[in-house]
């Protein structure tokens, strides 16, 4: 087992004036681990995700990431170029709405190739080859490589977003309700894809969702949030099958077959 986590949040809080977004959240994430963050709308899980993924500055606390070159490093201490580079190389972010994570006016191939070009790829043939490989990997026909994502179904757009993010082989992927807004059968396909990618690439992931069935299948560990605070955390199946906190018990019991 590796002794050092890949990612570590310590006492992260975010407040907007008197309103608390999230409060005093701490956790470690190890390589290859998938962490689920669940809670109802307004529980602070999205605020937390934005804080730890560098899209929002936490009011208090620190977020550390084990960089390839310098070891554990506070993301707040990173310069903006450094953080932006991290976000398009080592990190990935899958948005709930593919429109937020894709360029709808650019072809599927261009969407996948963008991160490669951003890190200096300048060979069209190579870029296109990588793009096709990734389209295949997320089960989008390579015949669609020159089509714009606006012509894709919701499930395809979501898979394209994943391909676009994974093409630079990130080590950590943040996902905000990745299966939200998709049909149940399409969700299943996406879950299967995410699970095998996580296993094959040794990815670590932080998934925010309100869907307990999703975390049951994807997450190793679970954090339950309510009113901005983590009320319970632990092994996913343990938290779901033997919830200790009143709120978690309520959450679990209000779901049909989690």
């Amino acid at each position: 087992m590796q002794d050092e986590p890949l990612f570590s949040a310590s006492a992260v809080s975010k407040s907007y004036g008197t309103h608390v977004g999230c409060r005093d959240v701490s956790f470690d994430l190890w390589p290859g681990e998938v962490l689920g963050i669940v809670g109802e709308s307004g529980s602070g899980k999205s605020t937390l995700l934005n804080c730890i993924s560098g899209q929002l500055d936490p009011s208090e606390g620190d977020v550390l990431y084990r960089t390839q070159d310098d070891g554990m490093k506070s993301t707040q201490a990173m310069s903006e170029p450094e953080l932006r580079k991290l976000r398009r190389t080592d990190w990935a972010f899958v948005h709930q709405n593919p429109r937020d994570g894709l360029r709808l006016s650019v072809s599927a191939g261009g969407n996948v190739g963008e991160r490669l070009m951003a890190v200096g790829a300048r060979h069209y043939g190579d870029i296109r080859r990588s793009a096709s490989e990734w389209l295949e990997r997320v089960e989008i026909s390579t015949a669609r490589i020159d089509d714009r994502p606006s012509t894709f179904s919701g499930g395809m757009q979501q898979r394209l977003q994943i391909a676009r993010n994974l093409v630079t082989h990130p080590r950590l992927i943040f996902m905000d309700e990745p299966t939200g807004g998709l049909d149940v059968s399409v969700q299943a396909r996406l879950l299967d894809l995410l699970r095998s990618l996580v296993r094959e690439l040794g990815l670590s992931a932080i998934i925010v969702t309100h869907d307990l069935a999703v975390v049951r299948l994807l997450a190793d560990r679970l954090m339950v949030m309510k009113d901005g605070s983590v009320v319970e955390q632990g092994l996913t199946d343990q938290v779901l099958d033997d919830p200790q906190h009143a709120y978690t018990q309520l959450l679990v019991s209000s779901v049909l077959m989690p």
């Binding site: 650019v106 191939g109 261009g110 190739g113 963008e114 070009m117 200096g120 069209y124 296109r128 020159d146």
Partner: peptide
């Protein structure tokens, strides 16, 4: 402006990529 400041010009090549692909 930020992209210019940080020399993040990958997007320019996305435009050229689109040209070639179309």
């Amino acid at each position: 402006r930020k992209m210019h400041a940080l020399s993040e010009y990958g997007l320019m090549h996305v435009k050229l990529y689109e040209d070639i692909s179309q």
